[in-house]
Design a protein around this nucleic acid. Structure first.
Lengths: 340, 340
DNA sequence: TTGTAAGCGTTATCAT
DNA sequence: ATGATAACGCTTACAA
């Protein structure tokens, strides 16, 4: 004897049709703003809609139209990063903007556990979205596999190495890293270390590669400390380790600004001053960069523009266009502040 | 050899049924793991599913089942805040966790413009979700109106003043603010100002009310500077203004940690030292609190727990339970660091 | 245990 | 300009 939930029954086109004394077809035409409806019919129907409180059921519409006007934005990151990393938020906002223009709904899907992976997989397969923007896919990512299997239109932000021919947009992490390392070299630094993070992702490994490129012969792998995440905490730990290994370093390339912020703290704790004793550069030009003392010289990453471009590429696919080239790069730039 | 062509047509129950030589009903039973199917039928059907690559179309299932197993998480905030405020991310993660347990998909919807409002309104009306978790609704929010009109199950985080009987969860901003202000008083501060933000939201106005409560007779409205957002920038501007109005303040209650971080900078710029000359307290215990120099004494806000509770309350509604009381508070605590 | 058939709320294709 | 009617892909009584 439980009391029934107070869910009022939704009005349908049928109800509206009856109320207005017309057929369902005519109602549908009015709702979708088509031509060929008489003024009087339109009027009666609009009144009826108002009266019965009709709202179209999109699930039904989707079923027959075979599209949803929604696209998934899949964030596959550990908690801490989604919360910490302003880039993701900006990519999301840029994508939302472009999709919004095209009258598509962005739905953001957070993958946070194995369990989530399964559910999202079902969600994507279930016809809830017309396509997906995939942020920071892992190598051998089950979600990527599903996308391929379904032939679901998708654009990736970044390009995991095992991605076949799926379109992606990103920045050129490798050459940008070489450039920013050049700042260190240009400042006369000779013992340059790197705190390399997230090597399981293309961004992480490309940044390391760029660092290596810039150093050439002088590259010394003992000066590279690998840490798992682009986090403040890992930056601190990694830099402490670096100082232990090689106390006389005079330059540090941190794989992200958050990492650089941690590096700065570790250096301060070790009694080094920046930029007098050691120069530090980061990557991202996130809020961290300005918050640091001294503010960071870093790579400006136009996150919103990346999101926007990703959305545009996806929309093009939805229109049935073939994307070529599959990869599209948004240009970065160096911003010089006080840390070198 | 490989099948490169683009969008393959999706297999349906019908295709599986034909392939397996059974009826659609039986296929449906297997897919939904019901009893009463013979081992041989099950086997044939499973093989057929694999062969034709069948994935259920959830839109169709939703239509007939009248539910989606998805809930909307609506974030109604300006860009900057969604990106800056770690609380929202944690609320989202807490909610996702609870929903995930209950096998529901969280769909995050970002409202960022008038245009977005319209689209989200349609999305919510469209039967894409069974319910919604609404974060930081505005007073007289069009989305709130739609939720009420639809009778869509919803839980609010915080409670805008014009919310009727809809369930909400939150923290007791007012008494927590009184408590944290007490820290300033307890430290012997006599000229205490407040940087009050976001007064159009319950959190903002309640924090101001708590400040007033704690001060009682000594409350002086000239010491309150109102700023629009919980942002670092507004904290800086507001505090500069406060110093202009009343140069001899010795205590500041900033409406959030981000605001407090800005306050700290403004004080430093004005040559005041913290906590020697003036004590500062914040609210949220976000990442900002630890990042500041000195670290902030602040109110710890269990954001993830709030998200989790919000999800639980929503799930209860989905089960048809009646929520009472409508409001549910998650306890906060004070964390003392160096800024007092 | 399995098949049949009636919807679920729309849109789309016909005649009219 | 409008009204039947057939899909869309699925679940679910009810029959068999």
């Amino acid at each position: 004897m439980t009391s029934p939930p107070t869910r009022r029954k939704r009005a349908t086109v049928h109800d509206v049709a009856v109320e207005a004394g017309v057929s369902r077809g005519t109602v549908s035409r009015v709702v979708n703003g088509e031509r060929y409806v008489s003024a009087e019919a339109r009027e009666a129907i609009e009144a009826a809609i108002e009266k019965v409180g009709y709202v179209p059921n999109t699930a039904a519409r989707n079923l027959v139209m075979q599209r949803t006007q929604a696209v998934g934005f899949v964030v596959h990151e550990p908690h801490s990063l989604f919360v910490d990393d302003p880039n993701i938020g900006n990519i999301l906002l840029g994508a939302n903007e472009a999709l919004s223009q095209a009258d598509h709904q962005l739905v953001c899907l957070v993958v946070d556990s194995e369990r989530d992976t399964d559910r999202i997989t079902r969600y994507l397969s279930g016809g809830f979205v017309d396509g997906v923007i995939m942020v920071s896919a892992r190598q051998n990512d089950p979600i990527t596999r599903v996308i391929e299997r379904l032939g679901l239109p998708a654009t990736f932000v970044g390009h995991p190495p095992d991605l076949r021919e799926l379109p992606f947009v990103g920045i050129d992490n490798r050459s940008a890293s070489a450039d920013i390392t050049g700042e260190l070299i240009g400042a006369g630094r000779r013992h340059i270390g790197m705190i390399a993070a997230a090597l399981d992702r293309d961004s992480g490994s490309d940044r390391l590669a760029g660092f290596r490129d810039a150093l050439g012969d002088r590259f010394d792998e003992r000066l590279v400390v690998e840490v798992p995440l682009y986090s403040h905490q890992d930056g601190f730990a990694g830099t402490s380790e670096l100082l232990r290994r090689e106390p006389d370093i005079d330059g540090v390339f941190a794989a992200s600004d958050a990492v650089a912020a941690g590096a700065l703290e570790a250096l301060r704790a070790a009694g080094r001053s920046v930029p007098e004793d050691v120069s530090v550069v980061g990557f991202d030009d996130s809020a961290w960069a300005l918050r640091c003392h001294p503010p960071l010289t870093t790579v400006h990453q136009p996150a919103a523009a990346v999101g926007q471009r990703a959305a545009e590429v996806l929309l093009a696919q939805l229109r049935g266009e073939t994307i070529s080239p599959v990869g599209s790069f948004v240009p970065t730039s160096i911003v010089r502040r006080g840390s070198v």
